[in-house]
Design a protein around this nucleic acid. Structure first.
Lengths: 225, 225
DNA sequence: ACCGTAACCGACACCTCTGTCGGTTGTCAA
DNA sequence: TTGACAACCGACAGAGGTGTCGGTTACGGT
């Protein structure tokens, strides 16, 4: 990606560390944590291909080669980061799912938890739900595996409610619906990011309006009167 | 992206043209068309960053440098292709939207048209709705602009129905809902691609079940009896 | 038949990127 | 205090990528 006549507009991937930090040496574990912390922002902003080891290094406060003392390759670093953030996401949402209340109340709480995560950890959200492309085959496999885990988790939730409601859906239809749910929430977050003035409650309301109530409800109401 | 010890698994971006074609010279317009046709598959499969000019060239039946006789840069080629395919998409869906039938029938027809496009033009779908990452800032701007156009088109459709139904939504809520709709359909297509045995009708059914009926409807039915 | 336009290509210049290697030096335990 | 482990870095090698330039030659208009 080099354009001699018209230089790239991307931020210069400067190899220098910020001069502010006065050259500290950290323990292995601490540096590894710093690398992951910095990599989160870089990968989220530039995607897998767009992020260079040089930029990843400066974000962690070290030079490029240090990364290879803690991770075998860029791919391994990325996979470790994504798995870490996915675990955080599942923990965050799982901790907020209560078994109490009506079905709609529980669904609302779950959606709210998802949006809360997106609000509190925007970079992690971008890493996990944006940027589904780029990278090696192994990277794509990792993403697929995590997505499958998310789908399974949501499907289990829905299945419980569907069973309690006394109806059992076709499992294939269930899978599509879950995939659409995730896609819909991803779209909602993308919009919210462009319109940050909206409150989380308003976004949750809109999500419930579409996913719980359904677009057909108003028409049905109209027919009834 | 080179790993000396473990060579990349990607297909070798061979600069040679397929020996089968016996060296034909085309008119400018024809070659330009061939380039766009070939680029569709390559960009869809590898994404913007992953596609190299060499591979784009072989896909079009010429060497790399010929591309620069027809497009000023990789970016310009990509933008031209995406705009072309987006126009095709809007035309395809627009042609199938009928003003007749009930609101739910019209919505079903629209969703069916979208899925039909995804089925008939998988590469175009991947180009337009997968791979929202990678590339230069200008590329990202193009994608944003096209997405905005799609959102506006769908919003206009919905607004008409909402108005006819005698209710006017908050425009902000409307925008979120449209974004979620697109995300949901994208998710459904992604699932369908992994499970091609499902019929289009079945996928449309699932989509209507979620987006039109809503997940809450079964619960409501249960409460009523 | 021919001639000029432009489609096509090989070679070149330059850049960025990943990953390796050997040396240097901060830091902690003994 | 001192020695060794490992955190850190500069320089190197190799690959691949984009875009340019000048020459060659197929092909259509006359």
């Amino acid at each position: 990606m080099s354009v001699p006549s018209a230089p790239s507009k991307r931020a210069a991937p400067d190899d220098r560390r910020p001069a502010a930090t006065p050259r500290r040496r950290l323990s292995g574990a601490a540096r590894r944590g710093a690398i992951l912390r910095g990599a989160l922002g870089v990968f989220a902003a530039r995607g897998y291909d767009g992020a260079s080891m040089a930029e990843l290094g400066t974000a962690a406060g070290v030079t490029r080669t240090v990364l290879y003392d803690h991770f075998r390759s860029k791919q391994e670093l990325y996979v470790a980061l994504v798995e870490q953030q996915n675990a955080l996401f599942l923990g965050h949402v799982g901790a907020r799912i209560t078994g109490e209340g009506s079905t709609s109340e529980r669904m609302r709480a779950t959606i709210d938890a998802v949006f809360h995560f997106a609000q509190a950890h925007p970079a992690a959200w971008a890493l996990l739900f944006g940027a589904m492309t780029g990278g090696d085959d192994a990277v794509a496999d990792t993403r697929r595996a995590l997505r499958a885990g998310q789908v399974e988790a949501v499907a289990a939730l829905l299945a419980r409610d569907a069973h309690e409601a006394g109806l059992d859906r076709d499992p294939a239809q269930m899978a599509v619906i879950v995939e659409m749910l995730i896609g819909a929430l991803t779209g909602a977050v993308a919009w919210w990011r462009r319109e940050p003035s909206a409150t989380r409650d308003a976004v949750v309301d809109a999500a419930m309006e579409l996913l719980w109530t359904g677009l057909g409800r108003p028409a049905a109401e109209r027919e009834r009167r």
